[in-house]
Amino acid sequence: MSNSFVIKGLRGGVAGGEILTGVDLEILPGEVHALMGPNGSGKSTLSHVLMGREGYESTAGSVTVNGVELLGLETWQRAAAGLFLAMQYPVEVPGVRVEDLLEAAMRARGSQVDGLNDRLISEAQRLAVRDEFLTRGVNVEFSGGEQKRAETLQLAMLAPSFAVLDEIDSGLDVDALRDVARRVKAMTQEDGLGVLAITHYSRLLTELNPDVVHVFMGGRIVTSGGPELADELEVEGYDGLAARLGIEIPEPVEFNRADPFSHRTF
């Protein structure tokens, strides 16, 4: 039970509309799992339901990190329990430096903050994050690549047990992609970080070298396999794969504005 990231029968979505239709997944320390799916399949919804974003809800199932049930906890408590979400679109927070938020996060979980600045500087060098991005408000006027380097920097500093990388490969150039992926890979090897990398491109995967590839459609994992599954997807696309495997893609539940609870069974 302990030392794993386990999602069981997870259903949920935005209030009044079920998007996740039963997600099951288990990630062990040091493993890299890729979650691939077409646009609108619910990949980002999964990341927000896992993290407990306001406006998103889980209606059934369980999510545990190292044995701790996350559903029902506040977002910051889920992070403190060892789950990190690297965002597809990191938010600009004017006047709040990376160091400020790291210090606050570390204090909240009782981690050592002595020498934080030194550690931050050496980690920044490792990720080729320039000094000006440490002194500015986090993500403020960062390019796509700088944002993703900064997300990875925070990931490395906070050293969680598991990380969900939500399209960390979008909006960045080849150099940044390589730096970010290599740093994440090193964390899996050196620190036992378990990774769920959400993506719809395979180029991240050549760098990350996943242990398992999951295909996500209609709010659930429809098939899983080795890295070769990503290559097959490249060739035949999601529709082709679904047809070949005889997978029926569940339609997303239509949201009824007049009665937001119409689809539920009580």
């Binding site: 977002t75 910051w76 709040v96 938020l101 606050a104 996060a105 909240a108 906070l158």
Partner: peptide, 18 residues
């Protein structure tokens, strides 16, 4: 902004202060 800081593990009162 509040959510972003929360995903890093910053508690709400502290996030608001920052």
């Amino acid at each position: 902004q509040r959510y972003y800081l929360a995903t890093r593990g910053v508690p709400p009162e502290e996030a608001e202060r920052l």
